[in-house]
């Protein structure tokens, strides 16, 4: 599905990631952990084609990302839902419009318009559907971002610090939503440095924990 083979990334003389190999198989659940600045966000961006590896090969759905045109990458992104820590919304659009943005840009619509209401209800944002993103709290923004990431029913969900700005209760709620998605067959990769969150997840789902250190990715030990 998404595969990195001996991938390195850097700029100038600085190498951020070196010789990384990683495979996100269909239906798998991964955590990516490591200290701040270790390269978690960079690795996630490599996984959805926002960055081009300086060495090695990144495959998006069996195609070499480096050889793909921008439009091909855009099409591939429709199969990948991304949740960023800073969420990235269009502030002049409502929550409902932001959530349905992936459908809008791909010229699609939901088979049943009430599905959008169901999706907003699923993330607990029914009453905020007409609110603008700046009016939302941190947790509401994260849930809206998650709703937007899944509205196209993508094959893969990449979440970069999705619980970074929310309290523990909201973190667990977001985690539950991601676990639910994984149970529906979606591949999930969550970058986080919150060990408690990883421990909670491991109680609910078979998750593989990866740690970035020394510019490379290692399987984390059983001490988690």
């Amino acid at each position: 599905m998404i595969e990195l083979e001996q991938v390195s990334y850097g700029y100038g003389d600085t190498t951020l990631l070196s010789d990384i190999s990683l495979q996100l198989a269909p239906g798998s659940f991964h955590f990516l952990t490591g200290p701040s600045g270790a390269g978690k966000t960079t690795l996630i961006k490599l996984c959805y084609g926002a960055l081009i590896a300086t060495k090695g090969r990144v495959s998006l759905f069996d195609r070499d990302a480096q050889q793909m045109s921008r439009d091909d990458v855009a099409k591939a992104r429709r199969r990948i839902g991304v949740v960023h820590q800073d969420c990235q919304f269009l502030d002049h659009l409502s929550v409902a419009e932001n959530v349905s943005l992936p459908l809008t840009v791909s010229g699609r619509s939901l088979a049943d318009p009430s599905e959008l209401d169901d999706l907003l209800a699923w993330v607990g944002l029914s009453t905020q559907r007409d609110a603008k993103p700046p009016q939302l709290s941190g947790g509401e923004r994260q849930r809206a971002a998650l709703a937007r990431a899944v509205v196209m029913s993508p094959d893969v969900i990449l979440a970069d610090e999705p619980t970074g700005n929310v309290d523990w209760e909201m973190s667990l709620r977001l985690l539950t939503l991601l676990v639910e998605l994984n149970r529906m067959g979606k591949t999930v990769l969550i970058a986080t440095h919150d060990m408690n969150l990883i421990r909670s997840a491991k109680a609910q789902v078979q998750a593989r924990v990866l740690r970035i250190s020394n510019k490379n990715v290692h399987q984390a030990g059983a001490d988690l």
Partner: peptide, 16 residues
């Protein structure tokens, strides 16, 4: 730029 970044993130093609 933020608009373009978001549109790219959600899979908008250049033409759009």
């Amino acid at each position: 730029e933020q608009v373009i970044r978001v549109l790219r993130l959600v899979g908008a093609q250049d033409n759009y």
